[in-house]
């Protein structure tokens, strides 16, 4: 498929309306027009500003985009006629609702692989929802729109983030030294901690560390030179299958970089600094213990 033709297109709603123009069905057009006006008014009231022309104009673009997003995500043929039939069959309001549910689903997924106290704040949630709604669904019917592609990429990214967070949570729960309780989590760092400590070869799960255990780990690796793959395999046996690919991927990333240095001759002090700055800083306790 040609990428440019996918991203640089008029909004799906416009394509459907062009097909409607061909059909010349005045009754359907009248109903659709009323529905679109009603939706625009509601969007203006809720998200932009229904007292200024600018606010209503913005709401109009959001309406076009949100309906277009729903059409783009529906499992239908890529023709104006098919999009029109879909729109008329369900009615503009239901189609808008579908689009808005896509946006809500997206907004509920994490933007980064980081858990924070603010994630459950209703105000923050509402703000994020509005921000992403405006980012993706603002479609000017007179020009091209790529919100559907942005949505597609974003949902893949965020699902991956969610997966990383789930993995981090699992590791914390099965931490060898007891469950890690902390409302904040840098899931990537937690995974890296686990992968690095797996090198010790005893198959223990470590999701959180401090400087002392890290020093011990470096000393242990330098003394005994445990086999990297054997240690990791032993560790992976304890991990549920859904997280294994993710951990394997992380292992391959680390193998060529920090693991190489762990097994090499880099000074422990330099190594500790690098680990703290670039890998596991947020999942390392500040106390020297």
């Amino acid at each position: 498929m040609n990428i440019t033709s996918y991203t640089a297109r008029t909004p799906q709603l416009v394509q459907a309306l062009e097909a409607l123009g061909q059909r010349a069905d005045e009754q359907a057009a009248g109903i659709l027009f009323d529905e679109l006006c009603g939706i625009t008014a509601l969007v203006a009231k809720k998200f932009t500003n229904d007292r200024t022309a600018e606010g209503i104009h913005e709401a109009f673009h959001l309406t076009v985009g949100c309906i277009s997003l729903a059409i783009s995500q529906a499992d239908i043929a890529d023709t104006g006629e098919a999009k029109l039939s879909f729109l008329l069959q369900h009615g503009a309001e239901y189609v808008f609702q579908m689009g808005f549910r896509h946006i809500k689903e997206l907004s509920a997924l994490p933007y980064t692989a980081f858990v924070s106290d603010f994630d459950n704040d209703p105000f923050v949630q509402q703000r994020n929802l509005k921000a992403i709604f405006m980012e993706i669904c603002s479609a000017d019917p007179a020009t091209t729109w790529s919100g559907d592609a942005v949505y597609q990429n974003e949902i893949v990214d965020r699902k991956r983030n969610q997966h990383i967070i789930d993995c981090g949570k699992w590791l914390r729960k099965h931490n060898a030294a007891g469950v890690v309780r902390d409302s904040e989590m840098d899931a990537n760092a937690a995974i890296t901690v686990a992968v690095l400590f797996a090198l010790s070869g005893d198959g223990r799960i470590v999701a959180r560390t401090a400087q002392r255990p890290l020093e011990n780990l470096i000393a242990h690796i330098r003394d005994t030179k445990p086999d990297v793959d054997a240690s990791w395999d032993k560790f992976l046996k304890k991990i549920p299958p859904e997280f294994q690919p993710l951990l394997r991927e992380r292992m391959e990333q680390l193998r060529g970089t920090i693991v190489k240095k762990l097994y090499g001759k880099t000074k422990p002090k330099t190594l500790l600094t690098e680990l703290q700055d670039h890998y596991i800083g947020s999942e390392q306790d500040i106390d020297y213990a």
């Binding site: 009754q27 109903i31 009323d34 529905e35 509601l42 009615g91 309001e93």
Partner: peptide, 15 residues
């Protein structure tokens, strides 16, 4: 309501 028009969802379009 126009013939063939559906009952409106109102605010439920955001649900």
């Amino acid at each position: 309501a126009k013939k063939g028009a559906r009952p409106s969802l109102g605010e439920d379009i955001f649900s």
